[in-house]
Amino acid sequence: MKSDPRPPVGEEPAEGPPPFLKTWPRLYALVLGELALCIVLFYIFTRAFA
């Protein structure tokens, strides 16, 4: 079969909700919140043992 194996371009991709927290903005907030928490904990860690 001679073909480009891809489905037609331009179809909207299947974009469901995330498996938890229901919406993507909430999941993004979770990732950024964890980053902020890491920075705070690393700072406390640095100060505590300096």
Binding site: R6, P7, P8, V9, G10, E11, E12, P13, E15, W24, Y28, V31, L32, E34, L35, C38, I39
Partner: peptide
């Protein structure tokens, strides 16, 4: 430390574009 920020930006923007265009 910049990596999680980049993951959020790419998830929100690049991923849907790449999927829509069905690129290799």
């Amino acid at each position: 430390l910049g990596l999680p920020l980049a993951m959020v930006i790419l998830s929100a923007t690049a991923v849907p574009i790449y999927h829509r265009l069905k690129v290799f």
